[in-house]
């Protein structure tokens, strides 16, 4: 059953990666990076469940807290602030 989840997450990573590669503007790439960060958080939680080591979920917590800061900085630059 858990391999089905891995397949779904791999498909989502492929779709976000395609948008990241062919994205015409910078905003498309920023949104694709944010999507990939969120999908990676779900992947880390799933891998912690797969390895049966629940201390690994802390890494996913750090991802959730710090993942959006880079996207926020790039968005602030595109807006004209910073």
């Amino acid at each position: 059953m858990i391999y089905v989840f891995f397949g779904v997450i791999a498909l989502a990573l492929v779709l976000a990666g395609i948008r990241f590669v062919i994205g015409p503007t910078t905003s498309d790439r920023v949104v694709a990076l944010d999507t990939m960060t969120t999908i990676s958080t779900a992947l880390l939680v799933l891998l912690g469940l797969f390895f049966k080591r629940y201390i690994y979920i802390d890494v996913a917590l750090i991802y959730g807290v710090l993942g959006f800061v880079g996207v926020l900085t790039v968005a602030r630059y595109l807006e004209g602030g910073l």
Binding site: S40, L44, R76
Partner: peptide, 29 residues
């Protein structure tokens, strides 16, 4: 960072996530 996590090194993955995704992007921008 996901690769470090898969290779059973969660502390390295933690540092890579904090510095690589967060801090270096801010400094470069």
């Amino acid at each position: 960072s996901i690769y470090f996590y898969l290779l059973q090194a969660p502390d390295v993955a933690l540092t890579e996530a904090a510095i690589g995704v967060g801090l270096s992007t801010i400094i470069f921008m």
